[in-house]
Design a protein around this nucleic acid. Structure first.
Length: 821
RNA sequence: GCAGGUGUGGUGAAACUGGUAUACACGCUUGGCUUAGGACCAAGUGGAGCAAUCCGUGUGGGUUCGAGUCCCACCACCUGCACCA
């Protein structure tokens, strides 16, 4: 019979779904294991080939873990709030809920066609009021604990469309939809105080098993550093300017100060800027206002700037420093003013060069040059010893930093500050398709939170139906247009009040979904304590590297908060994910990102139709190292299909023989190869080296293709280790071998170490490190014997003849290297 | 700009703690089978050379008996940068 993957795959998918063999059990004595993948955003484009990379990987791990006797939770859900559905609604007038429902149906069908062992009975969707009421409840708790507050934060404002834009919708400073001008506009927004958790978010990383690069990136993103804010009096005024720096050791080398265009020193009502500079400065500020932060950082190379006409005094040496304004300085970093030390900072150096400012050396590097004036092209950023710096001369820069900080503090000229790169989380969106923020604004009482009762047990804070999805031209969310929803009474004083009309960002729902999977239908609590104690935390979370700084950090923050207020029991620990790994992106065939506009998108449905789900799964695991970005290769899929065809055809053509204790007519290579394969596949799966696990299985199949008879037991073991990769074909062949129960109820096989020991090896013989011969010898050969054999080799003799042997290096069981002169 | 990563045949890649560079797969070449082949089977396949041999893991240095692997400097590319998810 032909390998008819369509029939086989459909049949087993139906059987598995009916029997619910992948559903996690809630009350069992078995050890638990919780695998988590990042739940998808159900976009209108359907499943991307990138999604199954992560899902297949953890599916393999989950299936293996079950076979090792664990009670495994491997859930799935949908992160369905977001911009694309809303923008689609603006264009077509179709309600996002309808689009979302349709998209989820498509995704569900696609995911099921790939045979993932998800527990579908626990599906969670963030747009479901039964789910998002708990998201809103968490917000109320954050507010109650003082972690939610309002602040004025700029948004991107399109002057033509008159709506606020997401950063992504701003392309080269222009509105993505109309190409019009975009400017920054300040708005009162809800903020979450994630910085209150900054220290714990860094320090607790030592208790989790994340890949190093993930830990490093998180630590750097939080960016905890000791700064010092130094005050300089501004000449001929009552004002002072406060610069912030992490390198006060170089302060004797300071020659100028640069402030951000938004700096208060330049504000009009202060009118400090001398008349003759005013026009130019104002013009510069206006230009800067149009650029996004990222553009400003990117353009920083070009070094634009204007002298303000003001000077300040460095109190260390009473030197006068001109104050410049430049948009490479950001208000969000430090105090929004930096001190220029052009001798030892590339950016300052380029700035000084361009505007012809003084450059002074205060650190000596390896070259030992101590001259005070630095010649052009000589900026020196590496570490070294202080010079030209009075009381800190001859110290290395770290000691000098400490001493300078003490000195400045003692004099009252500076103040130390622990500062983080991490900023508080802007939690408001002026959009419709998100969780309403359950807050009242009362004329008398001010901000009044909704009650828990209202949010949990009434529909008062559910998203109301609306007619138009465009944000209002005042910069408010479309909800602001529904006056009978907005205008309401204050729950405290019963006077007139308005509802908050901003909604939450997409990140909200995804910050705690993994907890809801544990108890998805609970109507009384976010999740039952007993179930949480059993299942939490997540044992293994895999996702994209691009989520390392935002989503991963946000969800760790929320989990810690829920842990602090006792929603998550103490026994679970204060970290949501024990282990975190990352998959690489799948690129288009040319090596570029897959996108509609490039026309290089691969639809997983077509691949499944042409080759079957098992081939698709194995190809995605075989294409390269799991953590690396890899281009799709349509031809590569063929090789994997051939492999599965070979496995199938073996069953059609081979004789399987039963061997009780011993099988004398079976060549030794078969048990040797099998046990080596079991070992390699087992270890490689655990280390996410799926590509090499598959190549080992290919080697084994190539080996037994040549054999006349194959022991049935060997074939069964092979099918079991292949089954997590290719669940359908293996389940089918398993049942064809006469087995009545599912292959996934089998135990994961163990290898026999005695069987995979090499008895002979190829001894590598080198002369001066170059390969000259390989000689098959006993694996336990002694050094003396190996030396003799090596020197007797004709090939080696040729090289050592007439030369002096300086020494011989012997690596047991591997090689011998003869060093000659 | 800052942060994290990657770089090996014609292609995707393999190489555990420094020890035979290129496993496995694609492609290609030759042959077989076939009415046919985008099916299957067999052999070959880093470069130069008749050969002995030499050269080869982004570039340039270094450490070592020995470097794809370790150290230093550089180059190119990918990801993220807070309102895409």
């Amino acid at each position: 019979m032909r390998y008819d993957y369509h029939k086989i795959e459909k049949r087993w998918q139906d059987k598995w779904e009916k029997s619910g063999i992948y559903n996690a059990e809630d009350s069992t004595k078995k050890e638990k294991y919780y695998f988590l993948i990042e739940f998808p955003y159900p976009s209108g484009e359907g499943l991307h080939v990138g999604h199954p990379r992560s899902y297949t990987a953890l599916d393999i791990l989950a299936r293996k873990k079950r076979m090792e006797g664990c009670n495994v939770l491997y859930p799935i859900g949908f992160d369905a709030f977001g911009l694309p559905s809303e923008n689609y609604a603006i264009k077509t007038g179709i309600h996002p809920a309808i689009t979302t429902k349709k998209n989820i149906e498509t995704f569900t069908k696609q995911l099921k066609s790939l045979g993932f062992s998800f527990d579908w009975s626990r599906q969670v969707t963030t747009t479901d009021p039964e789910y998002y009421k708990w998201t809103q409840w968490i917000f109320l708790k954050l507010y109650e604990k003082g972690l939610a507050y309002k602040a004025r934060i700029p948004i991107n404002w399109c002057l033509d469309c008159k709506i606020g834009l997401a950063n992504e919708e701003v392309v080269d400073g222009k509105c993505e939809r109309c190409g019009g001008e975009v400017e920054k506009r300040e708005k009162e927004q809800w903020m979450l105080k994630i910085t209150a958790y900054a220290d714990r978010l860094i320090d607790d990383l030592k208790n989790v098993d994340y890949w190093d690069r993930i830990k490093t990136q998180q630590t750097n993103w939080i960016g905890r550093k000791e700064w010092i804010d130094i005050t300089y009096p501004v000449e001929n005024t009552e004002e002072e300017i406060v610069v912030s720096t992490t390198r006060p050791d170089t302060n004797f080398g300071a020659t100028f100060v640069v402030v951000a265009p938004e700096h208060s020193l330049l504000s009009l009502d202060k009118s400090l800027v001398p008349e003759e500079h005013k026009n130019e400065v104002d013009k510069y500020i206006k230009e800067a206002n149009k650029k996004s932060e990222l553009d400003r950082m990117a353009d920083g190379r070009k070094k634009t700037g204007i002298f303000t006409g003001l000077y300040c005094i460095n109190q260390l040496n009473n030197k006068k420093m001109p104050i410049w304004v430049s948009d490479f300085v950001l208000t969000t970093v430090g105090t929004g003013a930096v001190v220029g030390v052009p001798g030892h900072d590339m950016r300052d150096f380029e700035f000084a060069k361009k505007f012809d400012l003084r450059i002074i050396r205060v650190v000596v590097g390896k070259d030992g040059d101590t001259s005070e004036i630095i010649k052009k092209e000589q900026v020196q950023e590496e570490e070294g010893i202080m010079v030209n710096s009075e009381f800190i001369n001859d110290l290395d820069i770290h000691e000098a930093t400490e001493k300078m900080m003490d000195h400045l503090e003692k004099k009252g000229w500076g103040e130390r500050a622990i500062r983080y790169h991490l900023r508080d989380w802007v939690f408001s969106r002026q959009r419709y398709w998100g969780e309403p923020i359950p807050m009242y604004h009362c004329e008398k009482c001010g901000v009044v939170p909704a009650s828990e009762e209202e949010v949990l047990n009434t529909d008062k804070w559910q998203l109301p139906k609306i007619e138009k999805y465009e944000p209002t031209d005042t910069g408010e969310s479309p909800l602001a247009a529904i006056t009978d929803w907005v205008n309401t009474e204050c729950p405290r004083c019963k006077g007139p009040a308005k509802r908050e009309t901003d909604t939450m960002p997409n990140w909200a729902g995804s910050s705690w979904y993994f907890l809801r999977y544990i108890d998805p239908h609970n109507n009384k609590e976010l999740a039952d304590k007993k179930k949480l104690k059993y299942w939490a935390p997540v044992d293994w979370y895999n996702g994209g590297m691009e989520h390392t700084t935002l989503h991963l950090l946000y969800s760790r923050f929320w989990y810690k908060f829920l842990y602090d207020i006792g929603v998550v029991p103490k026994e679970c620990g204060s970290e949501p994910y024990k282990k975190r790994t990352s998959h690489g992106m799948i690129l288009g065939e040319g090596g570029e990102k897959m996108s509609k506009s490039r026309g290089n998108v691969i639809n997983p449905d077509n691949v499944v139709k042409k080759y079957g789900a098992d081939t698709f799964r194995i190809y995605e695991m075989f294409m390269g190292p799991f953590d690396q970005a890899i281009p799709w290769d349509a031809k590569g899929v063929v090789g994997v299909k051939r492999f599965l065809d070979k496995v199938w055809n073996l069953f059609e053509s081979k004789k399987f023989i039963e061997c009780g204790g011993s099988c004398h007519d079976i060549p030794k290579e078969i048990p040797f190869g099998l046990h080596k394969t079991i070992k390699k596949v087992t270890e490689d799966i655990n280390n996410m080296r799926f590509n090499t696990a598959i190549s080992q299985m290919m080697i084994f199949i190539n080996l037994i293709s040549g054999a006349d008879v194959v022991p049935r037991a060997a074939m069964e073991k092979f099918l079991i280790i292949l089954s997590p990769f290719a669940p359908h074909i293996t389940e089918e062949l398993w049942s064809r071998l006469g087995n009545k129960t599912s292959i996934f109820k089998e135990k994961w096989p163990k290898y026999n170490p005695a069987l995979i020991k090499d008895e002979t090896i190829n001894l590598v013989v080198q002369v001066n490190g170059k390969l000259r011969d390989t000689i098959p010898v006993d694996a336990n050969i002694s050094e003396d014997k190996a030396k003799k054999i090596a020197k007797d080799s004709e090939k080696v003799k040729k090289w050592i003849k007439g030369k002096e042997i300086v020494k011989v290096i012997f690596v047991k069981g591997k090689l011998i290297n003869i060093v000659i002169r």
